[in-house]
Design a protein around this nucleic acid. Structure first.
Lengths: 300, 300
DNA sequence: GCCAATCCATGCATTTATGCATATCACGGC
DNA sequence: GCCGTGATATGCATAAATGCATGGATTGGC
């Protein structure tokens, strides 16, 4: 194992990101540096890892074979990073929180303001991503999710249930005939936020009977969806507390039961030993449990 | 996993070797370099890994916790090194062969001479060690052993059976009354080469009835043992072909059946794909299968 | 209680690696 | 077919890591 381990990391990230430039961005290094490290590793191991073809790199069979092992190194490095962060008992330092765009934009600001006021030494990075962050690879320290985690090495706490309702502008509701029953929505247009069909199934479980034809617009960005709804382009789903507080829109079926989305707070078990992570985790749990918006008793 | 992987390696080797100096020797680096790398890792992870006490270092609980993960990195690095060596199709380059002292000194020289003559581009390192080398950690590319490997990821070939006999100087035999039967050896003194008692059991299985009192001298060095035997200090076990060829000594019980020790040639499965390793492995297998010494038909 | 051996820390010259700017090249859109 | 975008290589000045020599400190042996 007497080769340069940093060069191995350069190889790993390059292979996973697909290009030297992307890997350099991911590692916060310059692209020539990474290129030279990969070259040096090839010379060191006497193996050709990449085939330089055109504007990109493709793994050679040898490279593919070695990639498997360097991935194991990377996994172990990730676990080490987790354990190291868990050992840190300092209240000051960085914390990264992963959440969907809508959670990051709507739920987190007041909590983070309070956190900053109470613990000025804690610096916060918000990772707003549409897909669930991989906590085992330490893409974030703490994550907000809409589902309970299945991985056994994660610890989670359910902080609240969010009632989700359908919203649209009064103008749009007028245009489709002021629906009163789910059946009235059979020709309405919804703005979808996921491509997997889960959104459609959720709505049908609510009593509607929709098909893919009802979803002419797809975006993976929650804020984009909400903007479209506010401009009268279609119907969208929103947290009942937040939607009721938005003057531009109205509930589509005001008296129907909302869909219940749980919000889970998740962290890696290794991080439970870190004082800083615990402080942030506990504060998030407490603050997020408080109802937001104007209608606190909205949940059926 | 965004920390310096070379510093992690420095931590691993330091923890396993027990000191910065020993780790520096193992890695072929200067001791201050390693010390600074460990310091930098501690600062990078914000964790105290070692407690500086007196002239040495002891792991902190945090360090012990992280060591587990960096060991996993090291294991993966070892597998990567193996796979990389296996990918090398160059006939030129280094090969390391592990063997016991006696094998390295007595069996290998003619084979290595022939190998050097046929393939001058291959450079050879002989690792003479008393304990079996760990091929999975790539302490050597090819090993000579006296037992069949049990690990599934090793490939092995039995190259020959070596008849082992007891030898001593005529002078010493005279002194203990020229033994003719195993019973006559009940008070003889043997020079042992292992501390585990396997040697004693092997001799008793041969028909002798010895106790620990028969082994007043212990050395883990085969050549040392053989030197002592040649100087008339006691009885020792030796390859029948080599022992019969030594004019200074005689067989102790000339007509008894020898103990049979197999010689296995072992390599890691990953290395089977390397052309250079195959060449050396096959040549070793062929050359070692030929009988050595003057009595080729000595076996039973 | 002293001496030798061994280990870790520090200062400084040198080698090595990195980053920036830039050249070069390939692919895709119009 | 031309051009823009995004990719990989190269030259050079700078920053960082390394090695050597040395100092300071502790343990074990006599």
């Amino acid at each position: 194992m007497n080769f340069d381990w940093n060069r191995a990391r350069a190889f790993l990230v390059t292979a996973e990101e697909g290009s030297l430039s992307a890997a350099a961005r991911a590692l916060g290094m310059a692209q020539p540096t990474l290129g030279r490290q990969v070259d040096a590793l090839e010379e060191e191991l006497d193996v050709v890892l990449f085939e330089r073809v055109g504007r990109g790199l493709v793994l050679t069979p040898s490279g593919l074979d070695l990639l498997e092992h360097v991935r194991a190194m990377g996994d172990a490095a990730g676990r080490m990073s987790l354990a190291a962060a868990g050992q840190s008992q300092s209240i000051e330092g960085p914390i990264s929180i992963a959440a969907s765009e809508i959670h990051a934009a709507m739920l987190l600001p007041p909590v983070i303001a309070k956190l900053r006021a109470l613990h000025p030494g804690i610096t916060i990075e918000v990772v707003a991503s549409s897909r669930a962050s991989n906590l085992r690879r330490r893409e974030a320290d703490i994550a907000l999710r809409n589902f309970a985690p299945t991985e056994p090495d994660l610890i989670a706490r359910k902080v609240r249930d969010v009632p989700a309702r359908l919203y649209a502008t009064p103008d749009y509701l007028e245009r489709i005939g002021n629906p009163k029953l789910p059946y009235d929505l059979r020709h309405a247009e919804f703005i979808s936020i996921d491509g997997s069909g889960m959104f459609l199934k959720g709505l049908n479980a609510m009593g509607l009977n929709l098909t893919e034809a009802n979803f002419p617009i797809l975006t993976e960005n929650y804020l984009v969806m909400w903007e479209y709804v506010k401009r009268g382009i279609g119907i969208g789903v929103q947290d009942g507390n937040l939607g009721d507080a938005e003057p531009l829109v109205r509930r589509v079926l005001p008296d129907f039961k909302p869909l219940i989305f749980p919000i889970w707070l998740v962290a890696h078990r290794e991080l439970n030993t870190s004082r800083r992570v615990r402080v942030v985790f506990d504060m998030l749990a407490e603050e997020l449990s408080k109802p937001t918006g104007r209608s606190a008793v909205d949940e059926t």
